[in-house]
Design a protein around this nucleic acid. Sequence first.
DNA 1: AGGCTGCTTTAAAGCGCTTTAATATCGAGT
DNA 2: ACTCGATATTAAAGCGCTTTAAAGCAGCCT
Lengths: 326, 326
Amino acid sequence: MAAEVGLSTASVSLVVRGVAGPSEATRRRVLEAAERLGYRPDRAASLLAARRSRLIGVLLDVRSTFHAELVGDLHAIVERHGYDLVLSTITRTRSEQRAVETLLDSRCEALVLLGPEAPASELAALDRQLPVVAVGRRLSGSGVDVVRVADDEGVASAVEHLVALGHRDIAYLNGGTGTIPALRRRGYERAMGRAGLGSSVRLVPGGYDEDAGMRAARSLLTSSAGELPTAVVAFNDRSAVGLLDVFARTGVDVPGQVSVVGYDDDLVARLAHVGLTTVGQDSGQLTEHAIAALVERLDGGRTEHREVVLPPYLVVRRTTAPPRPS
Amino acid sequence: MAAEVGLSTASVSLVVRGVAGPSEATRRRVLEAAERLGYRPDRAASLLAARRSRLIGVLLDVRSTFHAELVGDLHAIVERHGYDLVLSTITRTRSEQRAVETLLDSRCEALVLLGPEAPASELAALDRQLPVVAVGRRLSGSGVDVVRVADDEGVASAVEHLVALGHRDIAYLNGGTGTIPALRRRGYERAMGRAGLGSSVRLVPGGYDEDAGMRAARSLLTSSAGELPTAVVAFNDRSAVGLLDVFARTGVDVPGQVSVVGYDDDLVARLAHVGLTTVGQDSGQLTEHAIAALVERLDGGRTEHREVVLPPYLVVRRTTAPPRPS
DNA sequence: AGGCTGCTTTAAAGCGCTTTAATATCGAGT
DNA sequence: ACTCGATATTAAAGCGCTTTAAAGCAGCCT
């Protein structure tokens, strides 16, 4: 390529990277030749020579629609800062650790971890190697930057919405063990307390999928469970959909007899025939803050860690209404 | 790292890559030191020096759940062949071409394109640079390897299923323009013809999403459309879900009054409360053939192109039943 | 003319590895 | 003791770039 135009490789490098220096004439000459030869700089070589990759690694679960949305936003944002993305997904057979190692091998300068599961200590250790931002997960300690949505507030706003509609008998369909389920559950309990409904707190064992919701619905419908609550807040949309399904099949009118609120604003919640009232998080904000945090540490030299907590928003659709007359 | 153990970098390289040569003693010494120092070989440097990246690029749409599934399988398969994956996704703001360029820049040795949209000629041009396999799309000419499922057969088997149940008035909800919609539609037309129902062919304009399905359902329900068919085969699951939604809201019983079949065996089709009869494709087979094709060309020296067409399978769930009595 | 300045270009070193060919080591065999 | 072959190790070149310092070259001033 350099030989082709009778210039040094240095000049070519300068032109190709758009660095100031070469004259207009040289620039044109090189660009023309590059075009003609279909020249593409070798990323590996640049990376090696430049000692900067300008690569940001993203750990994701390719099966998650929410992650998909985030990746879309990330691409756009990262580009504005002159970085590029490298994706690494977990799968059934590919652990989080393995996925992160791939990212490390690609010599990423920083990592965005979408919903990481690793223990906080491990993440902190990672962060000692390179800037890391965890998205969407609450983390004790402050070994990494965190950008997340206040899940407890989200659930609280769901409860408040129901209370405002007149509900008093509001059950919560739990999401199992884990930091996120715990946080959401606490949001429910606190909100109930604040509404003077502390004594009506009613926790139903659940899980994260449709099946869990279906089981929960069936247990609520057995007479031994006592009267059906007038509303139930579910850990997430998937379990809420399970609830809706069983209610629909057993002739329980939603929202006539029971109101249902989900969490996540999943695609499934938005489907017109589901129309689930739910709590969503602003993916654009989430990614914007995540990248900002990394760039600050990479280019701005910030060293202490920070946690950004964004407010969730309630989306009222068709599964909530005033309670049935008792 | 080499200095650390008092050996040459060559020896270290040999050990780290697991190449035969170094003695057991050396091997242990290096491995121990690597562990202690947290040494990770630099991918870029290896890539540059080895002149082989052993990387396979995957073009995908991170928003597609089917692609997600494929990526999961790909990771597992590729690993068995000693390759690694690099992912590049299209997004709202990131074109297919841009995504492919990224892959090229990473010096992939071959590309797996999941549902590529580029014209065949462009793909053929790409294939002149490196082995390319297109997954899931029918391609005229033979400029690249193709692995796909026989979409026409899939739709045909849906029609045959309905015919076997006794249906004669079977409409098809079209998927818009594009090679895949065209192929599926033809599958419908042919199957109808074979069943002696050529004169009952009934095409409804549609699209690929829930909205299109909803619009189609409404148009079917207006009296001007004539009598409601006893069954409708939809271009895909998403549009089928739109149909189901409108039917449910307007009190049209499925499958009592109308049977509905989708296509894709999406997650949404599997949800218990949807229970959509649909046509699925075996993602494991698809990826297995795709990688096999690439490996053969990469390591086996095959040069001509090939097309692998896999059979789809019908999944009968709860949205199909014998037709309503007329 | 000679010395400056400011702009453009390039030689050369080197990034962290792989690879090849050559060298070192060690018994075994004669 | 000496050669031979097998095995283990390494020196050195080089992958395709970036980067730094230095060189080349105008034009300008004194």
